[in-house]
Design a protein around this nucleic acid. Structure first.
Lengths: 229, 229
DNA sequence: ACAAAATTAGACAGTCTTGTCTAATTCGTC
DNA sequence: GACGAATTAGACAAGACTGTCTAATTTTGT
């Protein structure tokens, strides 16, 4: 097929490009419909590919599902580590810097397409593939949490925070910055930027009230600084 | 109801009891297999009832699903309100009382059967039934969060806490006490009592570090009080 | 005990889905 | 341009599931 003359004819794609199309379409359909409800014909159509091509690349539905989860896990972990690399080790304005970091974490790792998809697949099919998700658990939460904990430990060592257990603090940091987004996450919705910013801001402020050294960020003194929705 | 004579013969159950059996079995199967993967024959078998009886009580699969969600929503809300009624309005030992409340919340509302099932159904099928889950959202998180916020506002008014926005504090309280259970929740696992206690204890301590009035609960002064896993 | 209502097992048609197969077409590469 | 590999559309068998129907049995209310 030569470059499309008509507007609805797409240029041909390579072998690898088709493989990726299939995995992406499969991720979308598995998330929407669940494993049992996902229809291979629909995946093929959504990938712009024939059904036989799906079976050529991935032997059967189950292998395709595993490929989807591995792919998402890998990309999500890469994104999380890339974002953790932007952690404010030498903060200028600790509150502002942590809010910025929280926003990057939310936008690039938790609320983006891959993050939402992976979370939903783990939630819906986690019990069906124990070994697959044990693998995710080790490489995902296990390593990313301790990487984040190390950054917080560094901040504490430099005297910016008073943290006793960095692992606990890291988990609580993540919990706090997402505290107001739980309902959206449950329903699979994509929260608005404003919501994300508000949740991150309120979360970081409470985090600093608990772990900050100077009392400037204390709750009793920040009445006028509340985020206006 | 006559007691069964032979050990593997169950006594007959009333019309209503069978209806409940069906809804309970359906909740279990919908959660395990998803809506598309749920098999009516399996639900009937698990309920100890014939397939036709399922169709007699609930016209079709979709109606049955809706009945399951409404039932779970109602029971979960009742449980949450009953638990909120045990909130420590006149705390003796604020930390211990809040940890106790957090444990009740977790055990009776979040980690119990109904809570896990409802959460999973919302996560997996929420997008398919927008109006049904909008209803849950209003009656569940909407009302329970503000009820909890009212209790925190009362504690603040009585001088036990320094809270600026009770709604934010309530959401952050819930986020903190579950901060260490997120991975278990994702995989649908039932966390051990020890895990729940540790998460609740660490969460309440951080909450009090941020919102407490007296500095006795401050992070810098509680090194020796850390929960031993 | 009797009549009405509910329940049961099983058969059944209709639909859908998976995974295979084939023959024709297109693509990548030399 | 030509050859081998990849892709395509479509048919196809095998199986699973939903929802209906029937005839027999059991339960419930009176």
């Amino acid at each position: 097929m030569k470059i499309g003359v008509s507007p609805d004819t797409f240029p041909p794609r390579s072998h690898e490009a088709k493989r990726n199309s299939v995995v992406e379409a499969a991720a979308s359909v598995f998330c929407r419909e669940g494993f049992a409800g996902a229809n291979i014909d629909l995946i093929a159509a959504e990938a712009g590919v024939s059904r036989q091509t799906v079976y050529n690349h991935h032997r059967d539905k189950e292998k395709l599902f595993v490929a989807v989860v591995r792919d998402l896990t890998e990309r999500c972990n890469a994104g999380i580590f890339a974002t953790i690399a932007t952690f404010p080790d030498q903060p200028v304005n600790l509150e502002a810097d942590l809010i910025g970091f929280a926003m990057r974490m939310n936008r690039n790792c938790i609320c983006n397409r891959d993050g939402r998809f992976l979370r939903k697949l783990i939630q819906t099919e986690g019990e069906r593939y124990p070994e697959l998700f044990a693998e995710w658990r080790e490489q995902g939460p296990g390593r990313t949490w301790s990487a984040l904990a190390a950054r917080f430990a560094r901040l504490a060592y430099a005297g910016h925070l008073a943290i006793e257990d960095p692992d606990v603090a890291a988990r609580q940091f993540l919990a706090l910055i997402n505290a107001e987004l739980q309902t959206s996450f449950m329903l699979g919705a994509i929260p608005e930027d404003e919501e994300v910013l508000q949740s991150a801001t309120n979360g970081v402020r409470t985090f600093l009230s608990a772990f900050g050294r100077q009392k400037s960020a204390s709750h009793t003194a920040r009445k006028s600084a509340l985020v206006s929705a």
